[in-house]
Amino acid sequence: MRGGAPAVRATPNVAVIVGTRPEVIKMAPVVRALRASTSVTCTVVSTGQHRDLLVRAFEDVGLVPDIELSLMTENQSPSAFVARCITALDDVFAQNKPQAVLVQGDTSSACAGAMAATWRSIPVGHVEAGLRSFNFQEPFPEEFHRRVVGVAAQWHFAPTPESRDNLLREGVPMHRIFMTGNTIVDAVKQMDVSRPFENRLLDAVPEGRLALVTAHRRENQGESMRDIARAVKRLVAAVADLQVVLPLHPNPNVRGLFQQELGDTPRVHLLEPLSYPDLLKVLHKSTIILSDSGGLQEEAPSVGRPILILRERTERPEVVQVGAGILVGTDPDLIVKEALSILCDPVVYERMVTVPNPFGDGKASARITEILESSLCEEADLPVMSMVL
């Protein structure tokens, strides 16, 4: 037996990759939990995929990235960004040598992070694993991205039973799937919405029923988005006390269309993108949400508000299955019909806002952290929290 003190084990490091505002918001609770851990450390890497929105997103959640890559360029294509991102992340991994890489969802940054880590033989954890639309074109390129990450991942952190079952059907071994809930619920619960609105224009929105409307998806741009605007105009004409808050997406094609179609419509408030605290405050004040956003499909039931999903299909069918949302696409007649049903029938409204949240209990980040601690620390004897849904 050799003498001397036992070797000191290095604390495992987890590299957390983010590049867009939704990633920052959804990964913030995970980063906080990892940084509070005594068993692992955490390095936050920002790719700068959506540079203009990222600075504000980090401020909203009170985090600062450890490494900033600033890879965004004007009019970037997904393929060009992914190529730059893989090269840059490969350098980061070579220098920092993380023991695990954590990516979230279905962005170009997540796809590049998973690929770069795999080529460095670094295990990948996928937060929000198993979502599927089963159509590579809707949403594009997100459905492709999440499939690529799914192939690379060692830990699949599935938010719901539906997403877990999708992974099982694809042949992912059960022992690599962990049903954790969705970290968006953690983020919503952790955000302080007691502060005044930062955007003072929101204080000028008159009292009454409020509809939050957002639209930006690539597959909706053009005539479909014009149909959404027409539906909004018809709704405010039909409901005398309805106010509409519509934050404009930075994409000039999207904002230009809504400014053209709704710029002079009474009771429609076209605003610049909202900070996350302001968005959640508007959500809490809203009577109804109309959106093609994936995140708002999760946030709406998390604050008990009904949502009309402005898409033809969704990779989050749970919100429809439990009755918290309705898939309406961009048909103006259907949008108006379903919105009026919610706004004018108290029974319909009450039924939609009292269903249980299908996305979990707000403890997903703690579960993810415990699973990583247990997996990365050979000597750890830590209980792994289970999620019952």
Rank of each mutant, 00 (worst) to 15 (best):
V239Y: 10
F359N: 13
G130S: 06
D345T: 07
K97G: 07
L334T: 14
V18A: 03
E170F: 04
P22W: 01
G48Y: 09
H126N: 06
T41D: 11
G360Y: 11
S386Y: 07
M225V: 13
I368C: 03
L71E: 10
P22D: 03
I368H: 02
G294T: 00
E370H: 15
T314P: 01
A57G: 08
L89I: 01
T265F: 15
L102T: 06
V328R: 11
V205S: 02
S37H: 07
L389M: 15
A100Q: 02
L271Q: 04
R176N: 14
A117L: 01
E138T: 14
F93D: 02
L274I: 07
Q99K: 07
N182K: 08
L235R: 14
N251Y: 03
R9H: 08
P12R: 03
L280E: 07
A80D: 14
V213F: 03
A339Y: 09
V64M: 14
V151L: 10
N199V: 10
S286F: 00
A116D: 00
A112Y: 01
G362N: 09
E138M: 14
D186T: 02
L69R: 07
P161V: 09
P98R: 00
V322R: 14
G62Q: 09
A28F: 00
P301C: 11
V355Q: 13
F134Q: 13
T160Y: 02
